[in-house]
């Protein structure tokens, strides 16, 4: 149904940025709500088969979202997103970070900055997300951690499962 909706994923290795563009068949207000209300974020933010649970949310400048993604084995991945600037239904910027269940940030890991822009596109909503990593070194630290933390292997297991199911 939504196969014609735009999805772009661009990597700039010189500048250490990720740019993700996605079109949604919904109004800008509705997509904005899905990004900024915790009860809606909980319904989509974790990639399947993981689930999201909000521990704390205060969507305002200087506020933050503290949440956990849980994999089917019960393994928890805690993060927090600190909101820096908010221009309702147009844009917000935030600092991403790895933390524990109490919300205390892991001081050994660098944080990345996210700049998220919502625009109208012929009745649909286009969301552009730019992720900035401070340096190649910062990005590498996050990559090293990602290789260890197992979330990606959860996704790989899902891929295998989907292949198995498709064969039946």
């Amino acid at each position: 149904m939504n196969t014609k909706l735009q999805f772009d994923f661009l990597v700039d290795k010189q500048k250490n940025t990720l740019t993700i563009k996605k079109e949604f068949a919904a109004s800008r207000q509705q997509v904005w709500d899905c990004y900024t209300k915790s009860e809606l974020l909980d319904k989509w933010f974790a990639p399947k088969p993981l689930t999201t649970k909000t521990s704390f949310m205060n969507f305002k400048e200087g506020g933050y979202w503290h949440y956990v993604m849980i994999d089917p084995d019960g393994q928890e991945y805690w993060s927090r997103l600190d909101y820096e600037t908010i221009t309702p239904i147009e844009n917000y910027t935030a600092l991403d970070g790895f933390c524990d269940a109490s919300g205390a940030l892991n001081p050994d890991l660098p944080r990345s900055k996210w700049d998220v822009t919502f625009t109208e596109k012929s009745g649909n909503c286009l969301v552009q997300t730019i992720g900035y990593y401070n340096s190649t070194r910062a990005l590498e630290q996050i990559i090293d951690m990602g290789m260890q933390d197992g979330m990606t292997s959860t996704l790989e297991r899902l891929d295998e499962l989907l292949v198995t199911l498709a064969q039946k």
Partner: peptide
């Protein structure tokens, strides 16, 4: 590999959001 996995994560995440909006 990491960028490839990030792409997968965002694709899945957005599949969820597409169905939620529907």
């Amino acid at each position: 590999k990491w960028f490839d996995e990030q792409r997968k994560i965002w694709e899945r995440r957005y599949e969820n959001l597409d169905s939620l909006l529907n």
